[in-house]
């Protein structure tokens, strides 16, 4: 995964609340066996609306998306994160995110930035005219108008994003601890250990 440091550029002022993953990428696009190319189906139903922010030439290739509360609710499809990546989006700013979406975004190197609604409103305003900068190291969002909004991020997630770490590889290195758990469980709760071997 590419390490994340500073994300700078135009931000798509979307702003909608409760954007579900069916809106981010409709089910008909899920039939792929690859992670690539999903940007074509991203926000398909929104793009059917005249004057939508996604087809505004000013936002072409914008690396940041600004959205409302509960972004990414609904299905667990990681295709939503892949679709955003394929559009060129590397960070989403919103007052809140669904749990599954923020996990999926993180695992694909997309930064989810949680800011209070009034700061998101301010960024929506700025985004119409000017670029926005997100700095992971200092955990701040800044604008050319001297706005400076600090944000919180889980230290482990920050570390993985900054280093571009592969979480599977990290956990595989804990194989001994996992084996020790399995040994304990097969003694104390053997009914969980037998799985499909039971029949």
């Amino acid at each position: 995964m590419e390490p994340v440091s500073t994300i700078e550029g135009r931000a798509i002022p979307f702003g909608r609340k409760n954007v579900d993953t069916d809106v981010i990428i409709p089910a008909r696009w899920l039939k792929t066996i690859s992670r690539e190319g999903l940007g074509r189906g991203a926000f398909e139903t929104v793009r059917a609306e005249p004057g939508n922010v996604f087809d505004d030439p000013a936002n072409a290739g914008a690396p940041i998306l600004v959205a409302g509360d509960n972004f990414g609710c609904g299905s667990s499809r990681e295709h939503a994160a892949w679709a955003l990546l394929d559009m060129g989006v590397k960070a989403v700013i919103a007052p809140s995110f669904s749990d599954i979406f923020s996990g999926n975004a993180f695992k694909n190197g997309i930064l989810t930035v949680v800011l209070p609604q009034e700061q998101v409103d301010r960024l929506m305003e700025v985004a119409r005219e000017q670029p926005i900068t997100i700095d992971l190291e200092t955990q701040t969002v800044t604008t050319p108008f001297q706005d400076r909004f600090p944000f919180e991020i889980d230290p482990f997630r920050k570390h993985c994003l900054a280093e571009g770490l592969d979480e599977v590889g990290l956990t595989m290195a804990r194989g001994d601890a996992i084996a020790a758990y399995e040994a304990r469980q097969s003694q104390a709760m053997a009914w969980y250990a037998q799985g499909t071997q039971a029949a």
């Binding site: 299905s75 667990s76 499809r77 990681e78 994160a81 599954i100 996990g103 999926n104 695992k107 694909n108 482990f156 979480e167 599977v168 956990t171 595989m172 804990r174 194989g175 996992i178 399995e182």
Partner: peptide, 18 residues
């Protein structure tokens, strides 16, 4: 609980989740 595809990979490889 539901998981994304990266987590599916994580569980397949390690039988755990962080």
């Amino acid at each position: 609980f539901g998981i994304g595809t990266s987590e599916v990979e994580h569980v397949l490889a390690t039988q755990t989740l962080l």
